[in-house]
């Protein structure tokens, strides 16, 4: 059985300067309760996007937008920041390092790290600015076709969110919330999964387990967002 933490207890595990992957897409499927408690600064944040202000949950800053607004992020590795104007402001002011990665490459770089692969060969980004980025090792030709060799990407922590999580850490996701949560569960030293509902072992049918509990180190009792 996994240790169950409060959002504040989970957040206190994260030290200043840590690298943190956060699941979610425009905040949908992010571990909102845990994010709200994080006090650490100087973070390297790996997340699909910079989320947005004015969340559908009534928050002023939705998901990781809170960390960005509070200037807790030193470096952001992401695919899209167009809906959060604070990212551009901080980047232009020189206080936030921004690394833009194509969304599919980002997912696959994380998957590669979690699956023990040495990199990803993808045609995406060939001949563009991406080719010059730090996450690209080189251009590789295989059987006459060119690819970017993208490095695997892992982090100190992965913060996930699941609708149902059983006491063994098995996760079932609701709607479109699985997004990056699934790959991030495999690619961090410490994986913390925030549950909207914690259920007993067996409370999720084996066929419906999307993320296996062996990948999860801690469960956060997040309380339910939909009553």
């Amino acid at each position: 059985m996994k240790t169950i933490l409060t959002p504040a207890e989970a957040a206190r595990m994260i030290p200043d300067g840590a690298s943190v992957m956060v699941g979610g897409f425009m905040g949908c499927g992010s571990p909102h309760k845990t994010l709200a408690e994080i006090k650490a600064t100087g973070l390297t944040l790996i997340c699909n996007d910079g989320s947005m202000p004015n969340g559908p949950d009534g928050s002023d800053y939705y998901g990781v937008a809170k960390l960005i607004h509070n200037r807790q992020v030193r470096k952001l590795i992401t695919s899209h920041v167009g809906l959060n104007p604070e990212v551009a402001e901080q980047h232009n002011a020189g206080t936030l390092e921004l690394v833009l990665v194509p969304q599919g490459s980002l997912a696959e770089m994380i998957r590669a790290a979690g699956a023990g692969l040495g990199g990803v060969l993808t045609p995406t980004g060939l001949g563009t600015l991406v080719q010059e980025a730090e996450h690209v090792h080189s251009v590789v030709e295989v059987d006459g076709r060119q690819y970017l060799l993208e490095r695997p990407l892992r982090a100190d922590f992965a913060l996930l969110s699941g609708h149902l999580i059983d006491r063994r850490g098995n996760i079932w996701y609701k709607g479109t919330t699985r997004n990056f949560n699934v790959v991030m569960a495999t690619a961090a030293d410490i994986v913390i999964a925030e549950a909207e509902h914690i259920v007993e072992a067996g409370g999720i049918e084996p066929e419906n387990v999307v993320t296996g509990g062996v990948l999860v180190d801690y469960i956060v009792d997040g309380g339910c967002a939909d009553g």
Binding site: T78, H80, A88, L100, P102, Q103, G104, T124
Partner: peptide
């Protein structure tokens, strides 16, 4: 996906989509 110095929203999924 980008107007350097003006708008830097990021490529999101566009680069993968037009390649794939």
């Amino acid at each position: 996906w980008i107007i350097p110095g003006k708008r830097v929203p990021g490529m999101g999924g566009a680069m993968d989509l037009v390649v794939g």
